[in-house]
Design a protein around this nucleic acid. Structure first.
Lengths: 319, 319
DNA sequence: CTGAAAGCGCTAACAC
DNA sequence: GTGTTAGCGCTTTCAG
């Protein structure tokens, strides 16, 4: 168990001062290429790596960012996170993943913690009821996903567009009485916006709307589908606000032996396997992740201004 | 934006030396209770928090542990991780979550990275083909999940017991010709061990076995069920090595209109919703997570010896 | 019980 | 271009 090498060990080995080694480490151009090369060689051979703590202590930049997801096992957020990781790590950041469990308090707790650790920035997946009061000091170093918060950067999905896309798709297939299984309006994106898109479409086409709002669970989807079909028997397609709901609705259709076109949003893998006939919309999670990570880096490294980004969605037709 | 407080600010505020404040911070008993109380008061009021980097630099203990999961969105691993987090954080550790994607190379990369950051320990979710060569220096500070590795601590599930439990359960219900949908033998746990449990049971009861091995996917489950029922028509129950396979098998049964008792392993939420008739086994993921986290802490803080833990499983009967 | 002082490994002025 | 030096905020001997 040999002790860890330090910058002065390298300096001694290379016959230079520690400053020069430090300059090489930090890509400072003020080093003769020849010297630099030799030092890099020695660093590699010795397997030396600078101590992050010492560096952080000196520079007051921790090279740490947090990512606060609602749930670690959320398929959609996971897709976005997977896209964020490489760009953040590439830039030399350590990333701390944390889970909010849809709790504003937990978010505040995590944010406080990150502040204490002097983290350089964070990406936060928003959810219904998330409040960002008293977090004004995060304005320059936080990117919020899925919802807009005035003063903060955000990356949003095209909620209205997604439902519009589905409805157009069904319309082209001859559907004239689509019903909608959605989420309560308190939820501004999956809830209100997607519902509005449905209502707008009905209005534009002169259709009388029929919908049910509930939670965001398999059960809610099943129940919504059941009620809707009972009270509106001439419904000729079921549009769901999300793939989770669609999974529940699919179960109801199957159980009751009805065969209607069914659609979701989210491009969920399991839904595609179990019910390949269900069409879905890809909201572009990986792209959103990349965009968010880049935006965060630009803000904390180059002081770029807060920005609200929006991403396009894409239809994933049924088999 | 006032500058961060340091230990000497607190010392000055309290009219003591920095040493005393440090002692309070570190729960050193050599402080008069009265003084300690006053200092704690001041720390709380000032909202002071010691700098982790400075502390780490001085003590060479980073208070950081890594958790390497195979996939962040794996439902089972997620359950274990959720149980680990609180115990690790309680103990003052920062936890870094990373994803291996079932790649040994990626694991080595993460482990190297953690070593460089001088992380205090790690928990690693094992998978088929995982090699831990050249990681001998991790022996005292690594806990491996789901598989045993000589020289390392591990926490394992009761793979054989789980299948045994299911088979006994079915037997009691009159099943006499259960077939088995499993995973290839290269996979030592979900693959070989669970298969062995099936074969042992058949031998003990004098049943002629019938099984199919494949990958660990919905499709594999579906295909396995199809082939098995085709070649062994008198099969009166389908035992699957995992809930993922069971999901696929359930789909096949449904499509082909057959109704057989079906069982999985993993207590998967979606499976329970979509196919409530399917019985499953709870392997005790949260308990495993807690046990692993505790074992790791004991090893790195008290130098406790490497240990191989095993967890009991529990039947989750069908509705 | 408490404090003064010496660093931990690194970077950033400032000299050369 | 390169070296010297002074700390960053904390813990830890070693003296009181």
């Amino acid at each position: 168990m040999k002790k860890r090498l330090t910058i002065s060990d390298i300096a001694r080995l290379a016959g230079v001062g520690t400053t020069t080694v430090s300059r090489v480490l930090n890509q400072d151009p003020k080093v003769k290429p020849e010297t630099r090369h030799r030092i890099e060689q020695i660093i590699a051979e010795a397997g030396y790596a600078p101590s992050p703590s010492a560096r952080a202590m000196r520079t007051r930049r921790q090279q740490v960012v947090g990512i606060i997801v609602s749930r670690l096992d959320s398929a959609s957020e996971h897709q976005a996170v997977r896209a964020m990781l490489p760009v953040l790590e590439q830039a030399g950041y350590e990333v701390l993943l944390m889970e909010s469990g849809f709790s504003s308090a937990k978010v505040a707790e995590h944010l406080d913690w990150l502040r204490q650790r002097q983290a350089d920035g964070a990406i936060l997946f928003a959810f219904t009821g998330l409040a960002l009061d008293g977090q004004a000091d995060w304005q320059d170093k936080l990117v919020v996903m899925a919802r807009r918060y005035p003063g903060f950067s955000s990356v949003c999905y095209d909620d209205k567009g997604a439902i519009g896309l589905m409805l157009e798709h069904l319309w082209r297939q001859g559907v004239r009485r689509p019903a909608y299984v959605g989420v309560e309006r308190q939820d501004s994106t999956t809830g209100r916006q997607r519902l509005e898109a449905y209502l707008d479409f009905c209005q534009a086409r002169g259709i009388s709307p029929g919908y049910r709002l509930g939670g965001l669970s398999y059960h809610a989807g099943q129940e919504g589908a059941r009620l809707l079909l009972a009270e509106r028997p001439d419904t000729d397609a079921l549009v769901c606000a999300s793939d989770t709901l669609a999974l529940g609705a699919a179960k109801h259709l199957q159980q009751s032996g009805k065969a209607l076109p069914l659609t979701g949003v989210g491009n969920n893998e399991l839904l595609r396997f179990l019910f390949p006939a269900v069409a879905s919309v890809d909201l572009g999670y990986p792209q959103a992740g990349t965009a968010a990570a880049r935006q965060l880096l630009a803000q904390i490294e180059q002081g770029r201004a807060v920005a609200e980004l929006a991403l396009p969605c894409r239809l994933v037709a049924a088999d």
